[in-house]
Design a protein around this nucleic acid. Structure first.
Lengths: 214, 214
DNA sequence: TAGATTGTTAATCGATTAACAATC
DNA sequence: TAGATTGTTAATCGATTAACAATC
């Protein structure tokens, strides 16, 4: 096994979760080994790309045999840090925040929710995903004590930029942001943006294109 | 203005919503014109890329002047079909479905919700985003009458593949899928996948990488 | 007209694919 | 050993960036 590459491109990183999900399916189906060729056919990728991708992190296969599914999944799990169990807080207990806090699919993604906050007094005290909603005024105290490392931002878009600044000051390093553009984010902040509207606009485009093709 | 390109790469398409959002911000700020250089600096892209992207669809600028913000937004709106107002149904009235149905940010993305469906009798009859939840048994009848063209899939992952097959048969062409991998999707189906877990795993990786850099 | 900035062609860069020697 | 399939290097392809003539 060779040492991992200096810097791995984002294109490769974003394929790792897909490999991981696929390997989980294979394990569920009782498959013990798979070749890059088979995996490629199943996932719609070339065998070559799969081997290139994996070899960014090390040699996980065996010549003449292929890849051990269980072992490969475990390695990808380690690479992505899915066992980290980082403490994460959720800001915004609205519909979307509630959906994220209640989602079972997010367990095993490297974090666990330790608190929910909202600045709407009407929501404070209600239950969201097994947690009692706290007022955002309690954030400083809570972070000093619990030291969460990640935050999910699910607030109306106007409030997001200031919030990320504040949370960075409170020691939070990673953000999963559903609230649009973040203005003047600290360079140390690691932000994963999800723009739901963008996906829908893209779909709108593709449907329009499709109509015109006919 | 030249005629649009034969086929535009997905990389370009996925930047269109970002341009659109940025132009909206500019309009909000009362900006009337902008050069590719200024826009690039603000968005973190090169001026060259912006000009290349826009010229896939036509020449919207003016030499020596730049781009008229209002006009450019309008053109991008047309390109993406954001005024289409396609009838869309939502399948799955759980937390996530509810959040999507209630979201105000999705108006102006080229569609409007016309119905919500769930196979859980306990949810049928409840209100989600101003709509009364119907039972999935009513889908055939509803689609025959209302002829929706799009569906949002927000059901537990096991149920998604069959559902897409069924909805395609009922005339639905575009899918916004939150329910993981779709097995054996009809080739005619246009599917926009959103894997929330993937984003979180990517964040997990980036945070791990960051810790190791120190 | 002179200056600015586009539209577009050419050059560069990075990512994907192909090829093949290494080896289980 | 022979067959299979990896790890890795080389070739190709596509996307981004640079350059510049066209033109407002």
């Amino acid at each position: 096994m060779k040492s991992p590459k200096e810097s791995v491109s984002l294109a490769v990183i974003r394929r790792l979760p897909k490999y991981y999900r696929y390997l989980n399916d294979l394990i569920g189906a009782g498959v013990a080994k798979i070749s890059s060729k088979e995996l490629g056919e199943a996932m719609g990728l070339t065998a070559s790309q799969i081997r290139q991708d994996l070899n960014c992190f090390g040699g996980f296969g065996q010549q003449g045999y292929g890849y051990n599914v269980l072992y490969l999944r475990e390695e990808i799990e380690k690479i992505m840090g899915l066992r980290s169990d980082l403490a994460c807080i959720l800001i915004g207990a609205g519909h979307l925040g509630g959906a994220l806090a209640s989602s079972r699919n997010l367990t095993g993604c490297g974090f666990r929710f330790v608190g929910v906050f909202d600045n709407n007094a009407a929501l404070v005290g209600t239950t969201v995903g097994n947690m009692i909603v706290r007022h955002t005024d309690e954030l400083s105290e809570f972070c000093a004590k619990e030291k969460p490392q990640m935050a999910v931002i699910a607030v109306p878009s106007g409030a997001a930029s200031k919030l990320v600044q504040k949370l960075t000051d409170l020691g939070i390093k990673g953000f999963w942001n559903f609230s649009g553009h973040i203005e003047g984010a600290p360079t140390s902040a690691i932000i994963e943006h999800v723009h739901l509207e963008d996906a829908m606009m893209t779909l709108s485009y593709r449907m329009k294109e499709n109509r015109e093709d006919e």
